[in-house]
């Protein structure tokens, strides 16, 4: 890509040079209890019409870049779900503290 190509959003990582030399690790460890619970929570909140998967993604995409790459997969989900529940007024902001 040429130098004047706009910088993609943080999550838009297809072809990104920074991972060019990173091997794809054969990580077959199944999701842990934390991840599976966050996953189930997202599904239940979606079933109840309290959030959509698109909103989940928007929330993940708004995580600042250093945290986006430092947090684990379901940690990013949890950040997004929490922010959405606060945004929609279902829980108080102090849940973050």
């Amino acid at each position: 890509m040429s130098d004047d190509t706009p910088i993609p959003a943080t999550h838009d990582i297809g072809g990104l040079a920074r991972f060019h030399c990173t091997p794809v690790e054969h990580d077959e460890v199944p999701p842990d209890g934390f991840g599976r619970k966050v996953d189930a929570l997202r599904q239940v909140l979606a079933q109840k019409g309290l959030m959509t998967v698109d909103e989940l993604r928007r929330g993940i995409e708004s995580i600042p870049e250093p945290e986006y790459f430092a947090l684990g997969y379901y940690e990013r989900w949890l950040r997004s779900i929490t922010a959405l529940m606060i945004e929609k007024g279902h829980v108080q902001k102090d849940v973050m503290e």
Binding site: V24, E25, F69
Partner: peptide, 16 residues
Amino acid sequence: YPPNWYKSFAYRSRAV
């Protein structure tokens, strides 16, 4: 569930 490697930054950026 998708495996961890499918969700990894390396796979997401390099496979394409």
